[in-house]
Amino acid sequence: MNNEKRENREIILAGFGGQGILFAGKLLAYFGLLGGREVSWLPSYGPEMRGGTANCSVCISDKPIGSPLVTEPNILIVMNNPSYDKFINAVAPDGLAIVDSSLVEGRSDRNDISCVYVPATEMANENDLRGMANIILVGRLIKETGIASAELIRKALEKIIPSSKKQLVEFNMKAIQLGMNS
């Protein structure tokens, strides 16, 4: 039914609390869930969440998931400097890092992984999508990996956005498109 690529994904999303890290992770988990696959989503819940860094692990697989805690991600989405420093060298060989280059200063010299730099926060601000840099990065992830079909993206958004805030679905779709065209 869906034409998304059925690969094993071990994903870390990381940034500041308030950037929508956990929400973006949830969106990815729903791509897997609605695609009929095994998924897990695990947030960091340490005291560092208060104004500090937030991160979450998402696994998508065709087999039951062993460890929901990802330590060597094959996909990293990163939205601040401390998280970039913490996780960029943990990315598995042949993995993919998607970096919000509006906020992250570092550029990786690893040549065994692909690094994609997207000025997502600037793009969000320029397009009246303030606070949706996270979704722009998810859009870019879809472009790079084919992790979700167009049909699945809308279905997942409709599932996780409460019906009282329905108008947000279209804003999120716009952010995804921006990311996919970046």
Partner: peptide, 9 residues
Amino acid sequence: GLLGQMMEP
């Protein structure tokens, strides 16, 4: 805490 905090189907 791992089982309590994680989401799964």
